[in-house]
Design a binder for these strands. Structure first.
Lengths: 248, 248
DNA sequence: CGTACTGTTGATGCAATTCAAGGTTTGTGG
DNA sequence: CCACAAACCTTGAATTGCATCAACAGTACG
């Protein structure tokens, strides 16, 4: 039951993973983390453009991002790609496949990434008699649901400037949660991909980035982003007047 | 363990509920349905406009729609309502609140509705030693995730006509799943609400409905909808050369 | 060290919003 | 059952924000 950690296990273990508070192990008792570790497979790093899985492929595992970044996308009837999300370290991918036999979307590495694979059958068996893990899974699903809702929200009747402001602030938050700077970061995806996600064409992305820069809200250098006036950004992103933090 | 069903229990029980294959009891062994029934609270019907719960309120229960229809919505920073979904009999509401202590959105009856309330703490305790229920919950969450994704998809770069066609076809499907006609049905929400959900202004809704009717795709009489040419509807909704994106 | 991908800029067109006003349905109390 | 208010829905005209088209400049990389 209690496994003796070898040196290499220790370096890679969920116990010591910097991301454990975001990922599956959060709130699990030490014993249960050990059990989880028993079924997690750490695969060799994937490179930019590699598929973790493809749409239509049989669902076997869910995946947790350890380093790097991943996008998930579906192919629409006319052959166009629709990007449904970007996934940073600590996030779990593939949960939308549990209900059917097959993955509804593809997952593609945006840059070199290391990934943990968790075979779902084994995870299910383990959680059958591990309430803490079960509760954690429900909470993660609920979190994903919230994230999707907020994306809906984002796409519904907002201007290009607002969409970009919202998404930049959201990335800022997500980087901060991972111990990185909230004010200076590097977007892992192309403008094309970000535009696709936001429902905007690349030309509009370019012009909108420029407008935010001209207004002194952000600094842009390729994929490097600096949030210059986060108050004004928040005001632009969420509603007409005043940054939302202004009210008690 | 095995409960003797009284007459009134029998009429209202999950065992006999017409919706059990859509709702929580699906795929559960008889015994486990019995256990589930032990914690389900059937409340007196709510009327149009009544809240099941309000955004910000403490999360205690999830809710299943038995009859009628419900919308969920959030209030945006500027005071506007944003409708995040419409819920028909057999669907479960409130799953987005599991991760936090509070409901992120409000649930409001669109018409007289009867609702089953399931206290979440009890559901969690029960599922701790009821794998079938646990698996069912995960599958329902996964289904919700898919539904949200398809809403994102819908809002991302599609014309008003396409959005309306997609949403009408989706309602058609959902009514059919519930044993109602797929070709003639009554939308439970106002055009205002449907427009809000689709990210369209009421004027646009009105014009778009009319255009679909003029093209002979649907028949419209207030909230009564008839799908006249479902092939053409599908072509418009998911099809190749609708209006916007026609490339090689 | 060129080929393909990604990003930028300007000119033009169009779909959906906005503004304005009138019509219709729904619900409520007398 | 009617009267009346409050929603809800429709129609037309003017406006605008984003897409499209076209051309070109970086940049990444085999």
């Amino acid at each position: 039951m209690t496994r003796i950690a070898t040196l290499s296990e220790s370096r890679d273990s969920c116990h010591n993973c910097r991301l454990r508070t975001l990922c599956l192990p959060d709130n699990l008792p030490k014993d249960d983390i050990g059990k989880l570790e028993g079924i997690v497979q750490r695969r060799k790093p994937v490179s930019r453009g590699d598929y973790l899985f493809q749409a239509g492929q049989r669902f076997n595992s869910i995946y947790a991002v350890r380093t790097g970044a991943v996008k998930t996308s579906t192919l629409m009837a006319n052959g166009d790609e629709h990007i449904s999300g970007f996934h940073l370290p600590g996030e779990v991918i593939g949960l939308d496949a549990i209900v059917s036999r097959d993955h509804p979307s593809s997952a593609i590495a945006l840059e070199t990434a290391s990934i943990c694979e968790i075979p779902y059958a084994e995870l299910e068996t383990l959680s059958d008699h591990t309430p803490s893990l079960q509760h954690r899974l429900m909470r993660i699903m609920s979190r994903e649901l919230l994230a999707e809702q907020s994306t809906n929200h984002l796409l519904s009747r907002r201007s290009a400037e607002q969409r970009l402001a919202v998404v930049l602030l959201k990335f800022s938050e997500r980087f901060a949660e991972r111990g990185l700077s909230a004010l200076r970061f590097r977007l892992p995806m192309s403008r094309l991909d970000l535009g696709n996600y936001l429902g905007l064409v690349p030309e509009t992305m370019s012009r909108t980035f420029r407008r935010l820069e001209e207004q002194g809200l952000v600094g842009i250098a390729g994929k490097e982003i600096e949030i210059v006036d986060s108050g004004a950004m928040r005001a632009l992103a969420f509603g007409a007047e005043g940054s939302q933090v202004a009210r008690a």
